[in-house]
């Protein structure tokens, strides 16, 4: 019986001493943390995708609370609604950005871009890009091994088996930018998201000269500049034999689409402009 009593007493004593030590330590090494960090962190989407440039949502929350001026901080996943809610909690002015969506700037489908070689190495775009042009002769196009698919946390990307290209599900895309960073060929771009995901963009990244581009891919941009001439909003620039439509200036008028000889310009959710028959004649 006495053994039992001693055991209980000893253990209780240890418990009391340990509690006292822990209490002392917790007082001495107490870290003053802004309570707002926790509440801001819960307001953020919690995906830890890194789209804001920080390692995770908690790091972003700390920065939001700490920084005086938060106009440079933006969570692309939460968007304007999330940012303004956080800003009103903190009493700061939020950054405002148009919603964006990842867009694939390559139209080199299997039928447009013939394969000239066979690749049977490691299934990674980065490795294939470091070795050679890939199975076609275009040095700038989508490789289709799916490095972007692997990094997308939202399931917005997939490789279309028919075209051999990556495709973006605009509904699921949060514009975190992980795919843009992962793509070794830089064929993915974050562009302004229009209502109903309408878009006009140049579906090509080839910086080669026109004849070389066309030899590699029938859907390539040859940098002829016709689109830039008809654009009334100065949204189109030609650089390195490649047209680029600035999505912030574009008004979706689609005149460029009608001009494009190779149909490298793509329309999404839009019908081409009706061509008047008199004008044609």
């Amino acid at each position: 019986m006495s053994i039992l009593i001693y055991t209980v007493l000893t253990l209780s004593l240890i418990g009391v001493v340990a509690a006292a030590v822990l209490y002392g330590v917790s007082k001495k090494f107490h870290v003053e943390e802004d309570e707002r960090i926790d509440s801001v962190a819960t307001m953020l989407p919690g995906a830890n995708c890194g789209g804001c440039g920080f390692a995770g949502c908690r790091a972003m929350a700390e920065a939001l609370v700490k920084e005086e001026d938060i106009s440079g901080l933006f969570c692309p996943v939460g968007g304007n609604a999330c940012m303004s809610a956080i800003a009103s909690l903190l009493g700061k002015t939020p950054a405002k950005k148009d919603p964006q969506v990842a867009t694939l700037k390559c139209g080199g489908t299997c039928d447009k871009r013939p394969k000239t070689t066979v690749y049977d190495g490691a299934h990674s775009c980065a490795i294939q890009a470091s070795l050679y042009t890939g199975e076609s002769t275009c040095p700038d196009g989508c490789i289709g091994e799916g490095d972007c698919v692997k990094v997308c946390q939202y399931g917005a990307l997939s490789i279309n088996p028919q075209t051999g290209l990556a495709q973006v599900d605009a509904e699921k895309c949060t514009a975190c930018g992980a795919c843009v960073k992962a793509c070794p060929r830089h064929v993915l771009e974050l562009r302004k998201r229009w209502p109903k995901n309408k878009a006009v963009y140049v579906g090509c990244s080839s910086r080669q000269k026109g004849p070389l581009t066309i030899r590699a891919c029938k859907a390539g941009c040859i940098g002829c500049g016709k689109c830039a001439k008809v654009c009334q909003f100065e949204a189109i620039t030609i650089e390195n034999n490649l047209a680029y439509i600035d999505s912030t200036k574009c008004r979706l008028c689609r005149k460029c689409y009608n001009e494009c000889p190779t149909k490298a310009i793509k329309l999404i959710g839009l019908e081409p402009l009706a061509v008047k028959t008199e004008e044609k004649q």
């Binding site: 070795l131 050679y132 042009t133 040095p139 080669q208 070389l212």
Partner: peptide, 10 residues
Amino acid sequence: GEKVNAQGIP
């Protein structure tokens, strides 16, 4: 000027 090399890269 640019010409494609053995790996097809200009």
